[in-house]
Design a protein around this nucleic acid. Sequence first.
DNA 1: CACCACTCCTGCCCGC
DNA 2: TGCGGGCAGGAGTGGT
Length: 271
Amino acid sequence: MPELPEVETTRRGIRPLVAGQVVTALQVRNPRLRLPVPTDLAAAIVGERLAEVRRRAKYLLLDFPAGSVIIHLGMSGSLRVLAAGEAPGLHDHVDLVFGSQLLRLRDPRRFGLVVWQAGDALAHPWLSRLGPEPLGGAFDGAWLHRVTRGLRLPIKQALMDAQRVVGVGNIYASESLFRARIHPLTPAGEVGPRRCERLARAVRETLEMAIAAGGSTLRDFVGSDGRPGYFQQQYFVYGRAGAPCRVCGSPVERAVSGQRATFFCPRCQLR
DNA sequence: CACCACTCCTGCCCGC
DNA sequence: TGCGGGCAGGAGTGGT
């Protein structure tokens, strides 16, 4: 399930292989994603040079002269660079062919998206109202404190709201709150300035560590099994209900918040 | 606004 | 061994 670190690792993996290359063909094998792949996509990009691969939140932006292909990996999407002619698998929806190689989007659960945005990609309605990047300078404790005043909803849900900060998904929300020693069900408005500071720092550190862990597997984006290698990453609480907290040994608990599984240590994390 | 519920889809795991 | 059921999960959308 790609969260921001996986998307960033994907970006870093594919960028050196496709940036600067000209699209020679587009193959839409299965247009059915969360929204249908636009039928006029080929007209927009075939024959054009891919200038840059950027990321905003969990969206990947493939920049062309006239606009950008915006890709979201949903929860099961992956992008790999393969040799042209590589036989497609069951859920390989789209290929961007660049001469002798291709960029292949696979998405078994079809929560992903491919859209075309003419002109500035950031002007797309899905991107234009997003909050700050968690790894950028605009996100810090002061910002987090400001955008959570008066909120009664749990801090975890506030953290996962892309208008407040982007890129914090279910896994890293739980992990960041553990790192900051804040109980995920604490009303967001009750988290004071010092704890907001700690939480903002925890979000940044958690994501940076995950990206660093993925960086060693960039070579996997070419060739056979191209999955980013976070599976080796050790989570503190996520998915560990009943298992001992890695810090204090108390059993990790599971709750549901905003219809999402939420994991925390009841002893380390205070309301 | 703030908040909530619903929706998309399929691989995987569990129990029988 | 096969099969049904339940679950997970990003984020847009459409309520109250």
